[in-house]
């Protein structure tokens, strides 16, 4: 069962097409990673999913119901099933509100403020380490980790089933980023959540996601189960992106593929394969023909005329837990 299906989404800003035919499936209870460089359209996808950005084309299906077919009132209910966890808690929490009013605000907006709802919020806050003594504090009196927890409780106030987390660990010190990721995992099980995790931190994506989709210039170029995609990427862009990740392992550093140039402008994408101008393996065919995303949906798929053959990498077996 899928929590969310995005099909052939197109997002335009005036004449610029930022997202061009993106399809995603988020299964219930899983964490799906979305990676790519600045300007690839991943945040536009996130904004469209939470309803902050209209789709120019395509459909969004939430728990089996297609939003575009639903009556207006039902749409609001459906959209409420998805909440966005904002990137920067310092910027998303009003400095003039106490934690108490910050936590109560979503209930007021949803007109669901009641003593029971408030008790539930306080209990939820307490269960993730935000004690009652913090309720009268202001955001500047919170640590970075606490501010993120407040943002998380606000997102969870509407009792969503899907959380879109846009760079949830950006700006967090490495010694406390694990705390937030552990918390997200615990809550996923406890509250039956599914996550769409957008991040440029490939270490985090590699560790906490079940599946991952790679975007380049408004399109998905490759997707698949995380462990497999990290070890046997088929698309040259995926491989270059993964190899660019700074590592403590000197052996892996030697295999680095440094791409020339930068992300081209989405207002005038290259002909054929959008990646061909930076691709170290481009052939004449790549400048003419647009590669189609192929492979089993939800499993491995990639859009490349000359995919890299997977090396006989060690089996990506997780230790049985």
């Amino acid at each position: 069962m899928n929590a969310l299906i995005l099909k052939d989404a197109v997002i335009r800003y005036d004449r610029l097409t930022a997202v061009d035919g993106v399809s995603l499936e988020l299964r219930r209870g899983e964490t799906l990673g979305l990676v790519g460089e600045s300007g690839c359209g991943k945040s536009s996808v996130a904004r469209a999913i939470v309803g902050l950005q209209p789709l120019a084309a395509g459909t969004l299906t939430i728990e089996g119901e297609t939003l575009q077919d639903a009556p207006a009132r039902r749409r609001t209910d459906l959209q409420r099933r998805i909440q966005l966890l904002f990137q920067d808690p310092a910027a998303s929490l009003s400095p003039r509100m106490t934690v108490r009013s910050l936590l109560a605000e979503p209930l007021k907006i949803q007109k669901s403020h009641s003593p029971e709802a408030w008790t539930r919020i306080v209990a939820l806050a307490e269960s993730i380490g935000l004690g009652q003594q913090l309720l009268s504090r202001y955001p500047h009196q919170l640590s970075g980790g606490q501010a993120r927890r407040v943002a998380l409780v606000r997102a969870l106030a509407a009792e969503p089933s899907i959380i879109v987390a846009d760079e949830p660990t950006a700006g967090l010190d490495i010694s406390i980023q694990g705390e937030l990721l552990n918390l997200l995992r615990t809550l996923r099980g406890r509250l039956g959540l599914s996550y769409l995790l957008i991040s440029h931190n490939l270490n985090v994506v590699g560790r906490v996601t079940d599946r991952v989709a790679v975007m380049y210039l408004g399109q998905i170029v490759e997707s698949g189960p995380t462990a497999d995609l990290f070890r046997n990427s088929a698309h040259p862009y995926t491989r270059a992106l993964l190899s660019a990740n700074l590592t403590l392992d000197a052996g892996r550093r030697r295999e680095r593929i440094v791409l020339s140039g930068e992300l081209p402008s989405p207002s005038n994408p290259p002909s054929g394969c959008r990646f061909h101008k930076r691709c170290p393996l481009a052939q004449p065919r790549c400048t003419r023909e647009i590669p189609v995303l192929q492979g089993r949906p939800g499993e491995r798929s990639f859009a490349c005329h000359f995919p890299l053959r997977s090396e006989p990498a060690p089996a990506p077996q997780a230790i049985a837990g």
Binding site: S175, Q177, N182, N203, V204, F230
Partner: peptide, 26 residues
Amino acid sequence: QALLACEIDPYAAFDPSQDLATIPGN
């Protein structure tokens, strides 16, 4: 030692039910 334990190696085998390392406190 604690700081290096917090580094994530996405290629290492891991137990998905295992918590990520952190350094508790401030």
